[in-house]
């Protein structure tokens, strides 16, 4: 078989048999300085999901390469795990934070470890994101009017947050900036 044909045939076979990773079809937007927050309210549950380029949090987007970068990752992870430094719902609603779930493949297994883990994504990825998911249980969800986002002050690289809301009053979209830090529900 002619080499060129063989190569194109094997590419076709590869395309046909290998599942295409979802990421291959749906690349996330990645803009430094910009983050997104999704807010969902259902019953007494308030779910807040933050998605941001790691650059906004750390200033770099790779597995930590030295001790100072590792310290930066540890500090950032510790900070994100405390929901009160990220988002604070209306005091009157009596919301209590549940466990926090952090998801940043590029940092897999690195936080608090000296050696990078084996399942880290390929080094040629140019960008990496952090997803932080918070769930609150609210005693008086009807009193849930706003959420104060406390990310801007301590993250000088963060300039804007686009917020999407799905709640009992329908869907909405808002834009937060350093001057406007309240999500209105």
């Amino acid at each position: 078989m002619h080499a060129g044909k063989w190569i194109s045939a094997s590419i076709l076979v590869a395309l046909g048999t290998q599942p295409v990773a979802p990421e291959a079809l749906a690349h996330q937007a990645h803009v430094h300085g910009l983050a997104t927050i999704q807010v969902a309210v259902a019953g007494d549950k308030l779910a807040i999901t933050l998605n941001t380029p790691l650059d906004n949090l750390l200033g770099f987007e790779s597995a930590p390469a030295n001790a100072s970068q590792r310290r930066a990752v540890d500090a950032m992870v510790a900070r994100l795990r405390r929901s009160e430094t990220v988002a604070v719902p209306s005091a009157g609603a009596g919301c209590v934070a549940g466990p926090v779930r952090l998801n940043a493949p590029v940092l897999a297994g690195t936080s608090g470890h000296d050696t990078p883990s084996g399942n880290a994504p390929p080094a040629n990825e140019e960008h990496a994101n952090m997803e932080a998911a918070y769930v609150f249980t609210c005693a008086r969800p009807e009193a849930l009017r706003e959420i104060e986002v406390r990310l801007f002050g301590e993250l000088p690289r963060l300039k804007r947050i686009d917020v999407q809301i799905a709640g009992p009053r329908g869907q909405a979209s808002q834009r937060l900036t350093t001057k406007n830090r309240l999500v209105r529900l």
């Binding site: 999407q164 809301i165 799905a166 329908g170 869907q171 909405a172 979209s173 808002q174």
Partner: peptide, 9 residues
């Protein structure tokens, strides 16, 4: 598309 979000946008 979330219609409420798209309209706000």
């Amino acid at each position: 598309v979330m219609p409420g979000v798209a309209l706000d946008n």
